[in-house]
Amino acid sequence: MSNIRLIARLDIKAPNLIKGIHLEGLRVIGDPNEYALKYYEAGADELVYMDIVASLYERNSLIDVVERTTQNIFIPITVGGGVRKLDDVKELLRAGADKIAINTAAISRPEFITEVARTFGSQCMVLSIEAQRNPSGVGWEAYTDNGREHTGRDVVEWAKQGVELGVGEILVTSVDHEGTRKGFDIDLVKQISEAVSVPVIASGGMGTMNHLTDLVDGARPNAIAMADILHYDRMTLEDIREEALKAGVPVRERVFDNTDR
């Protein structure tokens, strides 16, 4: 089996790394560059940067942060938040991002997905979906603005439409589970993953190692994003990787030898 990627997710309110619960009640954690470097050195497979206020205030404050971080970090970085125009994508890629995560702009104008994929390649067009379970308990609705604005779109249908329009990867954040440390929304990840042909990154809810293994058993995501557990040092990425390997979860084995720095 191919390796499941372990991704460190950093929510940014420039210039700070922040963390909330259900994407709200934001607390300042520290300097994103310091944390990013720490996660890189601990063997993160990838980083996700989300500017979680850009969408509200119509600005794009991530560029400086991305530019500084990517000076000394040599793993893929996905950046999202407030991306509205092709020029925004171009600027972020130039600043060092590899992939761009888009939510609001894709909801309001789905053709934007195709424009990004055509101009920069599907591989950099990540569809970011903020999912909340419907009050009926059946299905999920896609939200924007950190889970505040309804879109009326069914999450699984939206994921499928996104892939038809050129999305190369899907990042699904469970707003209900985000920041709660009570585990992932396994059913959500499973249904999306079974509905689309592209890789799926699961985000929101990791509090313990069991949450990760349950998610892998129940939904087989291609990648797992984690924030809280890392930012508050509840577990290190080294420990998570080691435990995952012990539990038989396919993750990259870091190979060292005596010439390693």
Partner: peptide, 19 residues
């Protein structure tokens, strides 16, 4: 191929770390 070597569907693009 959009299936693995056992014939089961798998994700394309291939994104990730391989040995």
């Amino acid at each position: 191929p959009n299936t693995d070597s056992g014939g089961k569907p798998h994700k394309i693009p291939h994104i990730g770390w391989a040995s």
